[in-house]
Amino acid sequence: MAEVRLENITVSYDGKNNVLEGLNLKVNEGELLALLGPSGCGKTTTLRVIAGFIDPKDGHMYCDDRDFTRIPVHKRNFGLVFQSYALFPHLNVYENVAFGLKLRKMDKVTIEKKVTEILKVCDLTEFKDRLPKNLSGGQRQRVALARALVIEPELLLLDEPLSNLDAKLRLNMRVEIKRIQKKLGITTVFVTHDQEECFSISDKVAVMNGGVIEQFGTPEEIYTRPKTEFVARFIGFENFIKLHKVDGVLECADGTKISVDDSGDKDECLLTIRPDDIKIVADDYKGENVLCGEVVVRTYLGKSYQYETMTPFGKVVVNDASGTLYNTGDKIRMVLDKAKIVLV
């Protein structure tokens, strides 16, 4: 159980281009932090810096105010779960889990007690004599977790641990990881590119792009109030409309006035809103924030239809669950939910 701080971390693989650029990050004790971002954004690099596999060119890493920057991996006592699980194929489940304890020169009785306990927590008791190749994906993943947890690490690091599982199992394991993490109260850093996974599991989220953190906050903050266009796009905002200020009022390119709670202090900004937060309304609807568009593509999503419409200022995507069907070429009126509009 520990608090982790990254200060001004800079990493470069080739000496010229920086993969991480002056990164600062803090994970509080017992918290689960998710590093979210597209591939190549530096999230795995950040995790590997924390784990100790990468020597940063510059900056420091602290764990409970002790400088860990130069401490080798095997002396850090951090639990790691790899995307590939990296279970030792020549050892059975019990031996895999006991591996770290044997290295700590514990006596047999203690090892057995600890391993049995963690196998129970991870629901693996009946598989303890099996070799990794005879386990399913979900079981392997739990063994990897058990192996990382049994050494009672100060920090748990998970590198896209769920990406090799099928959708249903992923959901179960998500809950499972969260449950075990909270039960043991262990500080955790979780790397993922799946926004849904990230929001459901984490206490804090750091959205990364191009080696820097674009936004840091609680899942709710990030989900409802993305601060940059990149973050907005990454977490599912699909509509982007350019606005400019005329006499203190925001307007679209064609003069449609947009009313928001806080219009900000920039003269030009980008309005963004999720397709779910736009409603299709009748032609005689009177109110604010109404846009007109022509349906271009209709997609059936199951619980709703998605319409891609063409408006004077570009493409607008709207999800409609009302049941009324619109065809390609239909002109529709859409109202943007004032409270859900985000300006970036």
């Binding site: 784990a51 596999f53 080798p72 991996v73 095997h74 002396k75 850090r76 006592n77 951090f78 639990g79 790691l80 790899f82 590939s84 990296a86 279970l87 030792f88 194929p89 020549h90 591996f99 770290g100 290295l103 700590r104 192996r147 990382a148 050494i151």
Partner: peptide, 29 residues
């Protein structure tokens, strides 16, 4: 042999030499 194996062993507290003898060598049998 995936490099993850070596790193997993290191993260569990084995230095490189121990990791080599406990993981890489048995896997190379």
């Amino acid at each position: 042999i995936d490099n993850d194996m070596m790193e997993a062993a290191e993260s569990l507290g084995a230095n490189r030499i121990v990791a080599f003898f406990k993981v890489i060598l048995p896997m190379s049998v």
